[in-house]
Each structure stands twice: as C-alpha cells, then as structure tokens.
Amino acid sequence: MRIAVVGIPGGWSSEALADAVAKATGERLLLDLGGARLDLSTGQVLCGGPGLRPVDLCRLDAVLIKKAAPQYSPDMIDRLELLRFVAGRGVPCLSDPERILRLVDRLACSVTLSLAGLPLPPTTVTEDPAEALDAVLGYGRAVLKPLFTSKARGMVLLDAASLGREASAQVLERFRAANRVLYIQQALDLRGQDLGVCFLGGEYLGTYARRKDVSPSAGGVSPSAGGAGSWSTSTESGGRYAAFDPPAEIIELARRAQEPFGLDFTCVDVALTDSGPYVFEVSAFGGFRGLKAARGLDVAGLFTAYVLRRLKQAREPRT
C-alpha cells in the first residue's frame, strides 16, 4: 500500500507523520507541494520531495495532508486545488481538501461557525477604513487579524482606548496596506491561556492549553510576535503547552464547532473568559505537537492507524 504524506520536509509534525506511515507501510513518501505539477491533459499530479523522485499522486492508495504550505497564505488555496483534483480522481485524501478549503480563510471559517450558532468573540469585517475605525473605538481593545495566518503571525493588538482616534486610524492604515479585508475582533481577557481541543474522525481525542505569563504591553500597539510581554498565547511568542482537562460542556462546544467541517483530524481553538467560552477557529493542520508535548499522545501513530482502518473498511465487500 502506497500512502504519501503531503507536508513540509523538515517540519516536526510532517516528519513525524511520514515516520509513522513508513513504519506501518514500509515506504516513506514525504512530498512537498511547492514542486508539484498538475497536467490536466494526462490527469497526473507529479510531486516529489527531498531525495525522492516525483510520484503521481493520482496513482497512490491515499494522500495524508499534514501541511499544504509552510504558512497560511492565498497560495495555500491553489495547492489545495491540486489535491482536490487528486481526490476527484478517486484517491482518498485525508482530510478531504475540499473540506479544508472551507476553513483556511479565517473569514470563511468564521462565517461557518457563526451560521452554526457557535459563540465567537465580537467581530467586525469590512474593507472600509471608517467602518473599521468605528469598530475599533467601540471595542476599546481589538485584535487585527490577517485572513490567512497561523500561530498569531501578523496579528496586531490595538488598544484604541489608550491611543485615541487619530493614532488608531494610523495603525489601521498600516495594517490595511497588507490586508485589504480588515478582520477585527474585540480583545478578550484570556487569563493567560487558550485551549486546543482535538478530534480524530469526529471523536474527542484530547485537549491541551497554550499558556504564558501575562504582562502588560506598552504604547497601545503590540504585534503578535512581540517576545516577552506579548499578548498572544501562541508558542511562537512565548506560550508553552500544558495538559488541560476541560469540562464536558467545553468538549461538546468544540465538537459542535468542528462538526460542520467534517475533517478527519482537527483542533478547535477555544477561549475561556469571565463572560463565557468563545470559539476562535477550527484548524486543519494544528494539534500534533500540542497533544504530544502536553499529553504524550502519539497523534501521528493514531492518525496513521485511523487511516489504515478507513482504507480497509472501504475495501471490504458490502453485505
């Protein structure tokens, strides 16, 4: 059985999943979509990786999608379209790239969550600078978020109550130079942590917390990667993973959040605040390292076993 992992060569989770698949199947195929070639006339999607000759993804038994690109960006959509072609040719892709396409754009993810009745932080989305400024001033403290990002990259905390109208407008204009659509959320008091609630095949797998010491930032504006004192719990800006056992109602909230997307493995970001729990987003790619570091779970091995069971069930004759 030939199963490839689409990921980032050298990336921790991609390498771990490729190792797990190799252990189960005897072949290690870690492929980088950055060098993929789609030939519509022949129906081939050729893709290779370090030390590997290109293989036709359409002739494999399955493709496991760990990472579509090094970072979230509009380019990721184009790469997922290549994988949608592979899935359309009958190759099982886990998770289904068409389902992943529904959530890599932060706005698309938020719209789906809101329509499903999930509690999101107060959020404004607009292309109009004046409307954005009104929202920021109304929130007092707001987080500006790119539509394509992970680990809080590119996010900005804007304390409009401290800066005032004119300075806040200047911050918004700088953000708008790189982000045509302004996605603005009221800043929440995370009490130093947020949660990653993970599911495998729709079943609850475990939860980890991202924690960091909270210290105030100065000047009214704080970028996401601000180092010590950064407002974000992201591990890239000083956060650390820790075990967390959520109550049943939080697990059920996260289950409802991931349900509309139907991914094979997913992580739901949840914030616990004094005003109640909020869902930030649903991720198609995160969770492996958090569950390993906080709970000792070999998610790569569990996911591989899950995939093999799915493939076996698909091959069994129906009675």
Rank of each mutant, 00 (worst) to 15 (best):
4 A>D: 08
6 V>H: 01
7 G>W: 06
10 G>S: 11
19 D>M: 06
27 E>Q: 12
33 L>W: 05
38 L>C: 07
39 D>T: 05
44 Q>I: 01
44 Q>C: 12
48 G>C: 01
61 D>H: 06
62 A>Y: 00
63 V>M: 00
67 K>R: 14
68 A>S: 04
71 Q>E: 12
75 D>M: 11
76 M>I: 01
77 I>Y: 08
79 R>H: 05
86 V>F: 01
90 G>I: 06
90 G>T: 03
100 I>W: 10
104 V>W: 07
105 D>P: 06
107 L>R: 10
107 L>P: 01
115 L>W: 08
116 A>D: 03
134 D>A: 15
134 D>P: 08
139 Y>S: 07
147 L>K: 05
147 L>E: 07
150 S>M: 10
157 L>D: 09
158 L>D: 00
158 L>C: 11
166 E>N: 09
166 E>T: 11
176 R>A: 02
176 R>C: 00
176 R>M: 03
191 R>W: 05
197 V>D: 06
205 L>Y: 04
205 L>S: 03
209 A>D: 00
210 R>M: 09
211 R>D: 06
212 K>A: 14
220 G>K: 06
227 G>R: 11
231 W>S: 00
236 E>V: 11
239 G>L: 13
244 F>H: 14
244 F>E: 14
247 P>M: 06
250 I>S: 05
252 E>S: 15
256 R>Q: 10
257 A>M: 04
257 A>W: 08
257 A>S: 10
267 C>W: 10
274 D>S: 14
278 Y>V: 13
279 V>R: 07
286 G>P: 08
288 F>V: 07
291 L>S: 02
295 R>P: 14
312 K>M: 10
313 Q>T: 13
314 A>G: 15
315 R>Q: 15
318 R>E: 15
